[in-house]
Design a protein around this nucleic acid. Structure first.
Lengths: 243, 243
DNA sequence: CGGACTGTTGATTCGAATCAAAACCGGTGG
DNA sequence: CCACCGGTTTTGATTCGAATCAACAGTCCG
């Protein structure tokens, strides 16, 4: 893994852990295959048996499951620096789909290479494990969101979370959060219908809490948003508040 | 960790992985402190900073989060053989509560001991990591359940899942699933109210799909239950169908 | 025996889904 | 350059599933 790809991963892993020079070098030497994806393309699908994981260098992807009645639920959104299918290292069959939200740059690394890396570098292994644990913490919060919050609060919570996560990787330029999701996709994150998401978005706009369009959203009143959302960021387990 | 405690953990870890004699011995030598808990006691609470993990030897516990409005959402139920707070090994602050559902026997192991074990036994580390990944897969399915299924289907799905998981550890005696949850607790798993859970339970009973009482439930028509639930067990990642 | 949960029932309300149609927008091709 | 097309956003009317409110019955336990 070379250049900015390695840098992005290392930055992320260092965020929560202590890696030494050897660890960093090992990551830089990781054999990686870079592939470009268009927006809205499936990367991995339910039932797949992966032999590699991908590092999300640029763009957004989401994970989703679809019920027998064809109802889709998005279970997570991934941002640059993450490894959305890291669980395939130990869970051999995919139990959901992964789809790109935007054009993406993905860096594929074989399971073999990752396993060797883990075997030789305990700190990296711990850091990667930790990444999957943070994912799990976010899943838990999403269950709470969908199960116990009102429609507006759910939507507000999603925005608050993504604002924090994108802020932590320095992707927010004076308040503008670049996240090109359609209202249908928002609805599928929240267990709502598109129509209702549209109405709740209007509520948030009317209150002057945010503006939004196809390219992303812009939080105008963060405090009010987070309060409305019942947002409590502990679950993100962000070690440092990066700005 | 001695006697049946070690056996239960080893059985579980072997289920998905290959451990050799040395690994097994290391687990048996793990220093463990056994504590008994009454039913409905909090084991770990939001904000805690753990220095140990506990192995659930006997009984059931659940993890939950509560919104600012006081609405509780149960995000997972744990059964004997699991380590519900294993994530504390790498995520230092608890982002939810863990409560016993029944009287429980818990075996506490210090983080230090676990970290030494992981450092020396790569296969055990992988097996433990895998456990947390299966947890995460279940969280994802719960989000789908709460987000996209009807009330009856949600309830049916919960029963179907617990039937499979308890079956895999040999806890089902001719169809009877021992799971003493109140309807309020069921409701908190499903993002529903107690009243509505009561009505949906009656629906399932009326259809002759199951019987249930305070001690647990008894599935009469498994196939119909799983179909109604849109239950597809891949996400449980049960390597072998144990009987 | 009494009290506190837990389970059940009925009447009513309400939030979100559904159904349907129109407006908008960005890209494509004639 | 403009007409068209598919996907997305918006609006309105209506329906429906689950919540709410309220009361009562059942059960466990000290």
């Amino acid at each position: 893994m070379t250049g900015y790809l390695a840098t992005a991963l290392i930055t992320r892993l260092i965020g929560g852990n202590t890696l030494d020079g050897e660890d960093i070098q090992a990551i830089q030497e990781l054999p990686i295959q870079v592939r470009q994806y268009d927006a809205r393309k499936i990367v991995t699908v339910l039932g797949d048996r992966s032999t590699e994981c991908f590092f999300l260098a640029e763009g957004f992807v989401f994970r989703s499951k679809t019920t027998a009645e064809g109802q889709r639920q998005i279970v997570s959104i991934h941002i640059p620096g993450e490894i959305p299918d890291l669980q395939t290292l130990h869970l051999h069959v995919m139990d959901h789909d992964i789809t790109t939200l935007t054009p993406c740059t993905l860096g594929f690394v074989s399971h073999d290479a990752l396993k060797r890396l883990n075997a030789r570098h305990a700190k990296i292994a711990a850091a990667l494990w930790r990444e999957t644990l943070v994912d799990a913490a976010i899943f838990r919060e999403w269950t709470v969101n969908v199960g116990r919050r009102s429609a507006v609060a759910r939507l507000a919570h999603l925005f608050a979370e993504l604002h924090r996560r994108l802020g932590a990787i320095g992707r927010i330029k004076n308040g503008a959060v670049p996240l090109p999701m359609t209202q249908t996709e928002l609805a599928d994150c929240l267990g709502l219908t598109t129509v209702h998401v549209n109405r709740m978005l209007q509520t948030l706009r009317r209150e002057g809490i945010l503006t939004s369009n196809r390219a992303g959203f812009h939080i105008l009143k963060q405090e009010q948003l987070e309060q409305l959302a019942d947002f409590e960021p502990t679950y993100l387990h962000q070690r440092l508040a990066l700005q």
